[in-house]
């Protein structure tokens, strides 16, 4: 146990726990929707042709619902840092606040770089 446990750590842990729960439920629902054929353009029987070829050969492999679920999971650890910013500012922890902001910038770059 870390003795100098701070309120920002507890808040981040609580937020992240909820965000991850929502993300995992979304992922399970998205997978069921994908198997049922909702939002998927490729028949399941054709999957062996898809998974043997490079990703670039077929473009997006995941359905739109799956993109939402995985996008949520790939964003939540950084998005949950944003509500910490006012707390860190009030406590004068500018270095940590700057690092949280930089996390948001790096994730935005990843989203942008993936699209281009």
């Amino acid at each position: 146990m870390e003795l100098n446990h701070s309120p920002d750590t507890s808040r981040y842990a609580r937020l992240l726990a909820w965000a991850v729960r929502v993300g995992l439920v979304l992922l399970a629902l998205a997978f069921l929707a994908d198997i049922a054929g909702f939002g998927r353009d490729i028949a399941l029987e054709r999957m062996p042709d898809i998974w043997r070829a490079p990703a670039a050969a077929h473009g997006r492999g995941a359905s739109r619902v799956m993109l939402v679920a995985i996008g949520w999971l790939a964003t939540c650890s950084v998005a949950c840092l944003v509500p910490l910013l006012p707390i860190l500012r009030r406590r004068g922890e500018t270095a940590l606040a700057a690092i949280c902001l930089l996390h948001v910038v790096v994730l935005s770059v990843a989203v942008w770089a993936g699209l281009h």
């Binding site: 998205a30 990703a55 799956m66 995985i70 790939a74 650890s77 994730l107 989203v111 993936g114």
Partner: peptide, 18 residues
């Protein structure tokens, strides 16, 4: 998280595998 977005956009996330 950041790398996951790259894989997602490059079409390298296949639900039947992931």
């Amino acid at each position: 998280s950041s790398a996951a977005w790259i894989y997602l956009h490059q079409g390298a996330v296949l639900p039947v595998v992931a």
